Computed example of a mutant assay.
Amino acid sequence: MNRVPMTAAGAEQLQEELNDLKKVQRPRVVAAIAEAREHGDLKENAEYHAAREQQGFIEGRIQEIEAKLSNSQIVDISKITNTGKVIFGSTVVLINLEDGKDTEVRYQIVGDDEADIKQNKLSINSPIARGLIGKEEGDIADIQTPGGKVEYEVAEVLYI
């Protein structure tokens, strides 16, 4: 089975969600099911059916998180010596050479589950990240975007 890369922060976030599901959400839904059962006839008991559905969702999410964590290879980028090369977990400062303004953007390359463009976290499998892996500070990267090819200069590579 292939190990899936994940940053230490991403693994910690999943672990926190798992703890919440097991210690807070699961006991709450079990109590709701017990309370709904006390109301009698289960066939027409909407509270019971809603609680059972929620329980199914919680149990499914617990299994999904446990599987992700067991298949992950956790990379703590802060413990790796910065060689100036773009690798998984690194944060890259790019200069857009196409817009005439030399606009700077900053992205961290993370695992699929951690990717969030609003937080400037790119999936390792995204076209931009694939185009940047292995590049070094000062290199030019031609990245295929939905709007066409964009030329970026790798201004800085941070291992934070």
Rank of each mutant, 00 (worst) to 15 (best):
V4N: 13
V4C: 08
V4A: 14
P5C: 07
A8H: 02
A9F: 05
A11M: 07
E12K: 09
E12I: 03
Q13T: 14
Q13M: 09
Q15D: 08
Q15A: 14
Q15P: 04
E16W: 01
E17Y: 04
D20A: 12
D20V: 00
L21F: 00
L21C: 05
K23E: 15
V24T: 12
Q25N: 10
R26Q: 11
R26M: 15
R26E: 08
V30L: 14
A31H: 11
I33Y: 01
I33S: 01
A34E: 13
E35A: 10
A36F: 05
A36S: 04
A36M: 01
A36R: 02
R37C: 05
H39V: 13
H39R: 15
G40T: 09
D41A: 11
D41R: 09
K43E: 14
E44K: 11
N45D: 10
A46L: 06
R52A: 01
E53T: 11
G56A: 08
E59W: 06
E59K: 12
E59V: 06
Q63E: 14
I65F: 12
E66Q: 14
K68M: 12
K68L: 11
K68P: 02
K68C: 09
S70V: 07
S70Y: 04
S72H: 01
S72W: 04
Q73E: 15
I74G: 05
D76W: 01
I77Q: 01
S78H: 00
T81R: 13
T81Y: 10
N82E: 11
N82L: 10
T83W: 02
T83N: 08
T83M: 08
K85Y: 00
K85W: 04
V86W: 04
I87Y: 04
F88V: 03
G89E: 03
T91V: 03
T91S: 08
V93I: 14
L94E: 03
L94R: 00
L94I: 08
L97M: 09
E98F: 11
E98R: 08
E104G: 02
V105T: 12
R106E: 15
R106G: 06
Q108A: 09
I109V: 07
G111D: 03
D112W: 04
D112G: 15
D112Q: 14
D113W: 04
A115P: 03
D116N: 12
I117Q: 13
I117T: 08
K121L: 14
L122M: 13
S123E: 04
S126F: 06
S126T: 10
I128W: 02
A129C: 05
A129V: 02
R130G: 10
G131C: 06
G131N: 13
G134P: 02
E136H: 13
E136K: 14
E136P: 03
G138F: 06
G138Y: 11
I140W: 12
I140M: 11
D142I: 12
D142R: 13
T145P: 00
P146I: 14
G148V: 06
E151L: 12
Y152W: 08
A155R: 12
E156H: 10
V157S: 01
L158I: 13
Y159I: 06
I160D: 14
I160N: 15
